[in-house]
Design a protein around this nucleic acid. Structure first.
Lengths: 244, 244
DNA sequence: TTAAACTGATATCAGTGGTATCAACATGGA
DNA sequence: TCCATGTTGATACCACTGATATCAGTTTAA
């Protein structure tokens, strides 16, 4: 076995090893599998050794959160468009959603209230969001107070991720996140085309709602009709119109 | 001590007592205080007795959730406005938010992904939401598919509650929930009630008017659809049909 | 060389969810 | 009356969790 020098050089390595093992356990086997014993065994050490690197199990989980987020953003090509703060905000939203969906168990831990005050990872994330919103405000495209915008975006993001995570993957509405983003932006940004008072789609949706009760159609016709109306896609009936 | 008759009459009482004690512990001391021992001691029994009433601790927590939600809605004056589904939806939103804020720890448990498939309490709540959205759709005030509307409302609601819960009470932006509601409704509802009633024929009439514009159907399908809609000859549809 | 700090290891603690087992008791039917 | 049945209360357990104490070696720095 390669002997790790016990000096301060090896400390970071072993510490990083612990974090990676814990992150892998959390990702592959869920939160309940992340026990001190399991992490220690995966990292090739005794359980008490972990407490020489982390004061608490919560501290370890915080480190795991930071590590997971760091590796996630490292994998993505950062498209920091300094000229268009709105596009930047959109990119941040996508990474937030993608990170939540890719690290379900970790996201559940981070959003759980009742956990001690605040994880530094989510605090940092919130700070990034604040900065992005601030830049949007600086170019005059915000029509609500910054704080309100930050809260709306944050709440909508966590809610969308949790809703997606709580539905089995085969039934997931993958466009929900996009629809939610547009929904929030329409309330927050200026110069966004307001939704046309589209009576056509409303009529179609209403008709879809009452279709099962139509007495003038046979069962087969009604089923076919429902299938047509459910055909959500790029048409005007689909999701929220993707304007911009 | 009052002796509880061991017959089937007392079973419901003791079971309810267990649930109430667990709910009180959860409410007053947080999720970590709800242990089998603590609940048993509060209910005046030994710990293993709980497992004679609940198969699992999760089952007990489900019962607690149902109990808490039932008592919450019992305290509120139910203003079921059958004539205005939109107002009904708004009332449902308020109860959802209020319940989440009043039962923080329980809300955290219910929204936690990684918990087994689905708590019956939240499933019932989702069903109520679906019914409410359906009624809104039936009167023609929805401009997105029902499922999309349900998901947006649900995600926005849980996100708003979690965001509020994760900020210390003295810093809470109490208007966040209202702002979020307006945000979602602005994307989901039409501005004008396009249909006076929710009758099926009325919806069909309105839909007949917009059917030629549907882009998700082929020409053949559109023709067939028009034929179906025209089938109600002699009925209230008769005068409205424009034959092209 | 010597003192401090780190490492690995074992034992141990208090709690946790959950199960097994046993005596006591009330009920219902014969 | 007697007995079988099922419920209750109680004690003792089990495997496991997070966390601590302690001890002998070993490395590092003074």
């Amino acid at each position: 076995m390669v002997e790790v020098r016990p000096g301060s050089a090896g400390r970071h390595k072993t510490r990083a090893n612990i974090v990676e093992c814990a992150a892998r356990l959390l990702r592959e086997q869920g939160a309940s599998a992340v026990t001190t014993r399991a992490v220690a065994q995966a990292a090739g050490m005794q359980a008490p050794t972990i407490y020489r690197f982390f004061e608490d199990k919560d501290a370890l989980l915080d480190a795991v959160a930071e590590h997971a987020f760091a590796t996630y953003v490292a994998e993505k090509v950062l498209v920091e468009d300094v000229d268009d703060p709105v596009a930047d905000l959109r990119a941040g939203w996508d990474t937030h959603i993608g990170f939540g969906l890719a690290n379900a168990a970790l996201f559940g831990l981070l959003t759980d209230p009742g956990r001690r005050v605040r994880s530094p990872a989510v605090a940092a994330g919130l700070e990034v969001l604040r900065a992005r919103v601030h830049r949007v405000a600086a170019v005059g495209r915000l029509r609500v107070p910054e704080r309100r915008a930050v809260e709306l975006i944050h709440a909508a993001g966590t809610g969308a991720v949790l809703t997606l995570l709580s539905t089995p993957p085969e039934h997931r509405d993958l466009d929900l996140a996009d629809a939610m983003y547009e929904t929030v932006m329409r309330s927050i940004l200026t110069d966004l085309p307001t939704l046309p008072t589209d009576s056509a789609t409303a009529a179609a949706v209403a008709f879809r709602a009452v279709a099962p009760e139509l007495t003038m159609l046979t069962d087969a016709e009604r089923a076919l009709l429902s299938e047509w109306l459910d055909r959500a896609g790029g048409g005007p009936l689909g999701s929220n119109q993707e304007s911009t």
